[in-house]
Amino acid sequence: MSTIGTPELLFLLRGLGWTLALTAIGFVGGIAFGLVVALVRVARRRWLRTIAAAWIAIFQGTPLLMQLFVVYFGLPLLGVTVPAWGAVAIALTAHASAYLGEIWRGAIQAVPLGQTEAAHALGIKYRSLMRDIVLPQALRLSLPATIGFLVQLLKGTSLAAIVGFIELTRAGQIVSNQTFKPLIVFGIVGALYFLLCWPLSLWGSRMERRLARDRR
């Protein structure tokens, strides 16, 4: 039975680094594509809204694990070979875009309609209306929910272990198999996840309370 020493801890920290990298890729990609989804979701043309609604329904209505499998095993069938981290990044980005798009769609529609009507009366074009009036307020309103989703996305990266990618959870499995001390190893892994997620959860709760005070 091996002991848990510096090499094992460094291996776990390397896995933690990949967990953070996957979270950053998925979140940044989700922000970019999610904003498009949100804007299409509130577009004037019905067929555009239908496409965005279908995208959201697919990725919210299916497990993230299944989405990882479809990307990882499906793309090679189409002749597109991607590494494990690339497949995970694509799946996380698509998954995040659906959730963030719906969060921001709700925030956009929460902006008082009178502001949009006033902008139209002043002759402000749609692009300026969204960029200068609606989106700044909507993004502020959606910040607590966005932070909450970031926490879920960070924990969701643990599913990358299923396709063989070595992030924090997979690193924990490997160290556990080597040392035969699963309770200690996954206790460390759980503590690392907690240290990442707990401050974000507190930040989201603080932002939610601040917005509630501002509405009074």
Rank of each mutant, 00 (worst) to 15 (best):
Arg49Ser: 03
Ser142Ala: 15
Ala38Asp: 08
Ala89Ile: 08
Trp55Gln: 11
Leu154Cys: 08
Val88Ser: 13
Leu211Cys: 02
Phe69Val: 15
Arg45Asn: 03
Glu102Lys: 08
Gly204Tyr: 05
Trp104Leu: 15
Thr116Ala: 12
Ala91Asn: 07
Gly123Arg: 10
Leu92Cys: 07
Phe73Asp: 03
Trp47Ser: 12
Phe73Gln: 00
Leu153Met: 14
Trp55Ile: 10
Gly29Gln: 06
Leu150Cys: 12
Gly29Glu: 07
Pro76Ala: 03
Ile56Glu: 11
Leu9Thr: 03
Val151Ser: 00
Pro136Tyr: 06
Trp47Ile: 10
Ser205Arg: 15
Ala160Leu: 06
Met207Trp: 14
Phe149Leu: 11
Ser97Arg: 04
Ala160Met: 05
Leu159Glu: 08
Ala110Val: 12
Trp18Val: 14
Leu78Arg: 03
Trp18Asn: 10
Pro83Asn: 14
Gly26Leu: 11
Ile147Met: 11
Pro112Asn: 07
Ala38Asn: 10
Leu200Cys: 12
Leu153Asp: 10
Val70Met: 13
Leu48Val: 12
Arg105Ser: 02
Val28Pro: 02
Ala96Asn: 15
Pro199Asn: 04
Phe186Ala: 01
Phe11Asn: 02
Gln60Met: 11
Ala91Arg: 11
Leu10Arg: 10
Ile108Pro: 01
Arg140Asn: 06
Pro136Lys: 06
Arg170Thr: 00
Ile31Arg: 04
Val71Arg: 02
